[in-house]
Computed example of a mutant assay.
Amino acid sequence: MRKPFYLTTGVLSLVLGLAGVFLPLLPTTPFVLLAAFCFARGNPAWEARLLADPRFGPSIRAWRERGAISVYGKRLAVLMMLISALGGWYLLTPPWHWVPAAFCAVVGAWVMTRPSA
Rank of each mutant, 00 (worst) to 15 (best):
A62L: 07
P100N: 09
I69D: 03
V111G: 09
L34V: 15
V71C: 07
G87N: 04
P94T: 13
F37D: 15
L26H: 05
L92S: 01
P95F: 13
C104M: 12
V106T: 13
W63K: 08
G67R: 11
T9Y: 13
W63F: 14
R49D: 01
L12Y: 05
L92A: 02
V15R: 09
P54I: 00
L82S: 14
V71L: 11
I83F: 11
I60R: 05
W96D: 00
A36V: 10
N43Y: 03
P44R: 14
I60W: 03
K74P: 10
L18W: 01
A40L: 04
P54K: 00
P54H: 00
P94Y: 13
R61Q: 13
R2H: 09
P30D: 06
M1A: 12
L76E: 08
G17A: 11
R75H: 14
R2I: 13
R66S: 14
A68C: 09
A19S: 07
R2L: 14
W98L: 11
A77D: 03
W63S: 10
N43D: 11
M1E: 10
A102T: 14
P4L: 11
R64A: 07
L18C: 07
L33E: 01
W96P: 00
V11N: 06
A68N: 09
W89H: 04
P95A: 12
G57P: 00
R64L: 08
V32Y: 02
W110P: 00
N43V: 01
G88K: 04
P94K: 12
R49F: 05
P58V: 05
T9W: 15
A68D: 12
G67Y: 13
L82C: 12
E65I: 06
R61W: 10
V99D: 12
P24G: 04
M1Q: 11
V21S: 01
W46R: 11
R114I: 14
P24M: 06
L76D: 07
V32T: 09
A105K: 06
A109T: 10
